[in-house]
Nucleic acid binder design. Structure first.
Lengths: 143, 143
DNA sequence: CCCACTTGTTTAGCTGGCTAATTATTTCTA
DNA sequence: TAGAAATAATTAGCCAGCTAAACAAGTGGG
């Protein structure tokens, strides 16, 4: 059985695509003064105002430290507000400001839609469905 | 035309997979005292001892700054050596040490092989071929 | 021959992401 | 009920990655 070079493996493709995809996301987000990663956090708060940092940590597959610091920066830039939870003084709840809400609603069309269109360009509808199915299996494999 | 939720787009899958894949790569690399990104750099030098930082920058789709700093750390940890180019005093050439060579040769089986096996697990041979083809198109779209 | 331009690298300062260790609060249990 | 254990968040310190700006060394044109 011949070994295929690393450069022709699915893993190598994924690492290249992951980088390119993130780069493009950053380009699209820069006009909103956001960085890749922040938009996911804002979207979570949008779906549940008053969510705690701990709940954010779980929902984003990211470490608690990263959440703490990203929230800190987003608060400094006026996208959200922190508030100590009254029933559990350990927990911190976060709420989007008007600016934060506007940002989330803009990210949808300024980033996700553009990114998706570019990503699946030149693929037929069937190929897109298929790709989605295969990627869901890959994600499941790696989780 | 109904909009599909972000969580069901190829883009969203790619960003999730990209993160999970990188995390797993880091786990596998940690036993070699390497971090994701460093292994690509070492592999490039392995293929061309004496490569310049500028050539590394081009070959890795990464900024010159990142190359400079990663090389600096890898040198500090004994994986490579820097040397000013004699014919062009601006350029810096890098060479793997024995430790660096050993690392590259171990990364192949300790990281790439394991990662690939895990990534395409539960996919048939046909599905793997297909996935590869679709991902190559995606990479081309994003480059 | 010298000054302008280009090229290769580095510094400063920012981002997301991480682990380990710390602090504060709550909960559980002996 | 008091002390131990679990939980939520933070601090310190590390890594990859980035842009902008500085610096140094070649290259070219007038």
């Amino acid at each position: 059985m011949n070994k295929i070079p690393v450069s022709e493996t699915v893993s190598y493709l994924i690492s290249r695509i992951g980088k390119a995809h993130r780069n493009r996301a950053n380009e699209l987000l820069s006009s909103l003064n956001l960085h890749a990663g922040q938009e996911l956090l804002l979207q979570q708060i949008y779906q549940q105002q008053g969510i705690t940092l701990n709940e954010l940590t779980c929902g984003m597959c990211v470490s608690a430290v990263t959440v703490t610091r990203t929230v800190e920066r987003l608060e400094k830039n006026g996208f959200l507000k922190k508030e100590r939870c009254s029933s559990d003084q350990r927990a911190v709840r976060v709420y989007l400001t008007e600016k934060g809400v506007a940002a989330v609603e803009t990210v949808e069309q300024k980033m996700w839609e553009v990114l998706e269109r570019e990503t699946v360009d030149n693929l037929t509808t069937e190929e897109r469905m298929l790709l989605k199915r295969l990627l869901m299996q890959v994600l499941s494999n790696l989780s």
